[in-house]
Amino acid sequence: MVSASATTTSDPIAHTFAALAEQRRKALVAYITAGHPDRARSLALIRAIVRAGADIIEVGVPFSDPLADGPTIQASSQTALANGMTFDGALDLIGEAAVDVPMVVFTYLNPLLAAGKDALDRAARAGASGLLLTDLPVGADPEREARIAAGPLAFIRLVAPTTPADRMADIARHGSGFVYLISRLGVTGARDDIAADLPATIARLRSAASLPICVGFGIARPEEAVAIGRLADGIAVGSALVRHAEESVDAAAAFVASLRAALDADVRR
């Protein structure tokens, strides 16, 4: 459960988690790659998956060398770059989508560095609420991390199955919004099972962090969403959604709706 201290009304992400906790529902965090399959369809996708029940949207700014990503998101990033997508292009998309759920800019450090010193202010003005960087672990660059934390966006940090308990506490202390728990070793991508040590990892993280916990990497089916939703405050879905998006906007929306229904049905039971 989300503790009351994690709630501040000025932060849309905290507000979302507080509202969900009140309804005893789980957060559904959905990732799309900006500019994939093309700009028009990623705009339609954002609106469609919000209607289908996503609580938070992660908008991926593509990077040429996504070393934390598996084949699905690598390919979507290549497509998006070929379509001319950029950091500011993704912000335009966020602004134009104008949806009423929090939007998180999800990317690697290098495109953010290239976007200049006021990049996060521009992101906030476009309507983004959070930032997630896959290759800036806590403690790697304290000055830069402090500048980001002092900026206008919630700074969502990642925890891995390999993270020791004392480091989990460090990570939670230096993050905001929620903690993104990587469910398993490896890169992003749909898998057929849930990591066996996940419940133990969540329990360790729970005792180290008061922020809400969302679990991602490898979730592809409603059953997995339900199983993880019983342990965490939310689930994040990426590669599986990108694959559906490749098929059609409707297929992606139907997939999100199926996860939403499964998560909500489990709570009601």
Partner: peptide, 12 residues
């Protein structure tokens, strides 16, 4: 220099 990697690799 530095260590700009996914969290999973930090302990290693």
């Amino acid at each position: 220099g530095g260590r700009y990697v996914p969290e999973t690799l930090v302990p290693a």
